[in-house]
Write a protein that binds this DNA or RNA. Structure first.
Lengths: 143, 143
DNA sequence: TCCAATTATGGAATGAGTCAATAATTGGTG
DNA sequence: CACCAATTATTGACTCATTCCATAATTGGA
């Protein structure tokens, strides 16, 4: 179902980095891998994962890689209320379902289709490029 | 168009506080007033506004009032990515339109109607009670 | 009026994230 | 193949929003 955008191989990531005018570094590749392995992880966890992988990496390098890759559309940052920023490798149009109790977060496909959730009732002159939707509720385990 | 829920008079606020089992204090009323006067303001600004009004109030009292009133549905907290928490007195079903450049935020009516935006594609067993929608774009002034 | 419960105050502390200076890499050029 | 400018990583200090805690003040019911 998902293809390149959500399941990049390491070479794919390299290409994507290069075509964004960025250098391909071991740190960035490792950060990408960590995000891919555990989607919706926060910077802290990603840092740990990468350290298990590379040995050493500074917290800043992780933040920097996450920021740079988010800005260039390689990964996506989500910031649900009350939670630190989380990162995911799925960059296609989809939304999220968050549990109020356990902080769990899962992907959910766009309710409307391709990208129609971009159509707000009235755009008030804004040029809208993204509709961020978070459904809040209680997950099965917490019920 | 909006009525009680979005334009409460001070007595209304008192009643709402009481029926939530909370005490009616000058601080809370003033915080409510501040939120009402400048919707989408953040804690810091609200604190200033309230200080102009009451003279003195602790930062904590403001945070506490904001939290308590949010938890009891008197006001609503919104936390757009990259911004500190903001508060508004409109508690009915509506969404937001945020400018990526200038951080401005405006209300927007629900695109779908009454509360159908609660219907996600698949609920994955979650009991959904809210759909938080933020449209991101560039506002007229920033274009 | 008094007392228990709620609320406010002030100050210290936490946690996420950024800034700034220095060191290490990288990759294009001669 | 070596060099140099540009990019990236490291380290540590710092900011900002928010919470925690202990103490003091207020509130409203008995």
């Amino acid at each position: 179902m998902e293809k390149s955008a959500s399941n990049r191989t390491q070479p794919d990531v390299s290409v994507a980095l290069k075509s964004a005018g960025l250098q391909v570094t071991a740190q960035r590749l490792a950060v990408y891998r960590a995000v891919q392995i555990s989607p919706h992880a926060m910077a802290d966890e990603i840092c740990q994962t990468v350290r298990e992988d590379l040995g050493v990496i500074s917290r800043q390098a992780v933040y920097d890689a996450l920021n740079t890759m988010s800005e260039n559309g390689l990964i996506r940052r989500i910031q649900p209320a009350g939670s630190p920023a989380r990162y995911e490798h799925r960059v296609d149009n989809h939304h999220h379902l968050a549990c109020r109790r356990c902080e769990s977060l899962i992907d959910i496909d766009c309710a409307v289709g391709e990208a129609p959730c971009l159509t707000a009732q009235a755009d008030h002159g804004y040029i809208i490029d993204e509709a961020e939707v978070i459904y809040w509720g209680i997950c099965p385990q917490c019920q």
